[in-house]
């Protein structure tokens, strides 16, 4: 009854995207080889893109593929291959002194809490939008998105420029080779 009250295509799309997302995500955290993990990540990213399209965020879906799959994961693979991390020992860190079970426990508790809390508030309170304009369907929502970025989120948009500059300067600084030989002369 629950499922049948919704249109079949949308259910199929949901199931497909969920399968992609979850399979990929589980792959990321279980696969040993970083390249395989990256491939799993791409799977998840596609799943998310599908979920975006299913919710009329097709522009974002495209951007999702372009930015994440087209650039971020490529960058991952580039570094993996460049450093040969998959063959040699990887960069290992132990950020938290938590054990696996503890982490699992924490995450499970948190997520069930999230789900519970969301269920308690009937998933969304359904209030009308307070800011920005109503979401239109189809092609117009790209325009709307653009308008929103240049009005409501103008400052944030400008800030991203700064963020990217810092990131680029930082990355160049970090990845630059040692200057020992150059300065010794």
């Amino acid at each position: 009854m629950l499922a049948l009250s919704y249109a079949l295509p949308s259910i199929i799309v949901f199931v497909a995207s969920a399968a992609l997302i979850l399979t990929g995500a589980v792959g990321v955290i279980t696969l040993k080889n970083p390249v395989h993990a990256a491939l799993s990540l791409i799977m998840t990213l596609f799943g998310v893109a599908v979920a975006f399209i299913a919710q009329q965020a097709d522009f974002l879906a495209a951007v999702q593929i372009i930015v994440y799959a087209g650039a971020i994961v490529v960058l991952f693979l580039f570094v993996i291959m460049f450093l040969g991390v998959d063959r040699r020992e990887g960069v290992e860190v132990q950020p938290l002194v938590g054990q696996k079970t503890l982490a699992l426990f924490g995450v499970v508790v948190t997520i069930s809490g999230v789900v519970f809390m969301m269920a308690r508030s009937h998933w969304v309170t359904g209030i009308p939008s307070l800011s920005g304009s109503k979401l239109a369907n189809g092609a117009h929502n790209v325009n709307q998105l653009g308008t929103s970025v240049f009005t409501t989120y103008l400052f944030a948009f400008e800030a991203t420029a700064a963020l990217l500059i810092i990131a680029v300067v930082g990355a160049v600084l970090l990845a630059r080779r040692e200057r020992s030989t150059g300065e010794a002369q």
Binding site: Q55, Q56, A57, F59, L60, V63, W123, V124, G126, I127, P128, S129, L130, S131, G132, S133, K134, L135, N141, Q144, L145, T147, S148, V149, T152, Y153
Partner: peptide, 13 residues
């Protein structure tokens, strides 16, 4: 989508 508000999509950006 549920709020019919573009803000969420802008945030994704």
């Amino acid at each position: 989508r549920t709020l019919s508000d573009i803000g969420g999509q802008a945030s994704v950006f």
